[in-house]
Design a protein around this nucleic acid. Structure first.
Lengths: 190, 190, 190, 190
DNA sequence: TATGAATGAGTGTTCATTCAT
DNA sequence: GATGAATGAACACTCATTCAT
């Protein structure tokens, strides 16, 4: 038998990411992916069950990568505010350095393609952040509100700022990131 | 020649909104819109140049409606914080009462269909809010940061909370809205 | 609007019949039908919901045509044997004169495409024959067996002889038809 | 070289039969057969030239099996009517006990896949029956008609009754078989 | 104005088969 | 002998849009 080309899987992922960034998720067809990855369309079906499977696996890979970047060597014993700031900065840096992954995650999460199984599987990647929120509330350092609300205020403004950065509307440099970190902290601190 | 039928235009809009909410933007085809609006597909082309034109016009209409709801009888002479709170509450209430408009706007903004021309045209609808931000900064009541940043912190957490509300994840009731208003204010106030 | 081309529907039917006879039902694709009917494949979907709908309608049309040929001016007051013979002769003549319809019906009935709704709808076309069987049993002229069994012995030998005729194995001329009528009558008569 | 694995060949046959019965001939693909037989799709090509070859060989095997069941210990010296009845009963019992073989033969014979070479090769399996017909005509016990006609009236009604039995339309029990034997005999006897 | 008819280009997916090991 | 990898061709069907009336 022929040896499995380990890079082919990766090439398909890369082609998919690139296309989704260029033309959008809904315009990204299997045949376009195939052409861009220099394989036959039917070859994709050797590596993935179908389009949904391909996107789900790419989504989990993106989430895994992001979580890895955010929480590798993450010191959970740090004071709440310091840990919070580090997380938010790492999160934002990941987005800025991984535009393609981020914009894919964004589009995929906002599409009806996201099935619940996937969303539950991917949630666990961010456990450290949720634990941080809980600890912060226990110590009365964070506001006594739903963790989901803390998460919203922590993640979405930075994400939106990054999106506007990518669209060329308004640069997200380190100065601006400092402001975002400050404003975010103000919103969640007790 | 006969006058264009104003109600037909409206029916097409309504059908489009409904479909986008039910099956998603990318699954909303001209023929589905036509069937749902009880007109022939070709009739849509009497009222709109093409699909893009239809969606753009619907987007502007949605933005106009939202701005109208937010700023009708809006007293610009109120103190900054009061004006800010009123705006944010009205904004959130609009979203909650106009699920279809909101989810359409969301999907459309996240799609590559949104052309820049449209996005500039639609910005002016929110002039009163931008003026409020400027005034707040002048009076040193709001943080000295980009207006776009103030806008991000003001709009996106509430929008995200509404989305999770619509998805059934976490109810957005008046108590929660109070928390959001508080957290948002904390993030933007000087 | 453009006028509906009444012949187009008929052309699609004809192309379908021809293809099914030439290459078989399972090899008859929508694109082959389209090419053979000199229309675009998508045009077929203007006239029929989908492939199943096209085949079902063609099947009903074939059944209707056969029933028309068999029972037009059919004198139900004739003696059983005479009526029986006329029916069987007409049935066989229909098959011989309508090879394409017959071979399509055969293939369709033996395929999993035949849905029950269709089969019930089409059964009523042969009511006169079933009534004849019932009357024959009442008068003790036919054997006291299930009507379905009478139908099997009446229809299938003639059908099989026609199939072998079409395959060039053994000609079905009037002499042979006389023999078939005799043998069939012997099998069902009391 | 290694010997071809006889059980693998058999497994492929079994899987093919099963699939054809479950999903139909036209839905039975090489990859489905492979999966069902627990071999790789390419392994099938070690044992058979291509799909057509596989089906042809399975067809001959089915015919051989049927003939074996019908004519083993068949006493050609019996009186015509007794021999005829025994043959017909064995034939019907074979069908009822070998649903999978029978339905495969049926589907294959009605498909354009059946090539003439195959059909001639398979005819010889039924020589004993043809000899019986010839003898019956010589003794003026059977009608003086084509042997092919005698064969049609002998085989097809029973086959059709079995098909309706398998479809759940009308049970083929011993009582019914007795009726079929009687009716068939009436049709062929002089 | 309104619309049914028509279509080329595209969709995701499966197919039988061959290749390289 | 056995098989995973690979593929061009085909499948049924939908799309946005134009045409003729």
């Amino acid at each position: 038998m022929r040896l499995k080309d380990e890079t082919k899987n990766e090439n398909i992922f890369k082609a998919t990411l690139q296309l989704i960034n260029e033309v959008g998720l809904s315009e990204t067809s299997m045949s376009k992916i195939a052409k861009s990855a220099n394989v036959s369309a039917s070859t994709i079906y050797v590596y993935f069950e179908n389009k949904e499977d391909l996107l789900n696996k790419l989504y989990l890979e993106a989430k895994r990568k992001m979580s890895e970047e955010m929480f590798t060597d993450f010191d959970e014993s740090l004071p709440i505010q310091a840990a919070f700031e580090i997380s938010l900065r790492r999160f934002t840096h990941f987005i800025l350095k991984n535009k393609e992954y981020f914009l894919f995650i964004e589009q995929f999460q906002n599409s009806p393609l996201l099935k619940k199984i996937t969303s539950e599987e991917s949630a666990e990647y961010f456990e450290p952040l949720y634990r941080l929120f809980e600890k912060g509330k226990e110590q009365n350092i964070l506001k006594q509100v739903d963790t989901s609300l803390l998460n919203i205020f922590t993640s979405y403004p930075a994400m939106q700022a990054a999106k506007e950065h990518f669209l060329g509307k308004s640069e997200l440099n380190e100065d601006k990131l400092n402001l975002i970190v400050q404003m975010t902290w103000d919103s969640v601190k007790a």
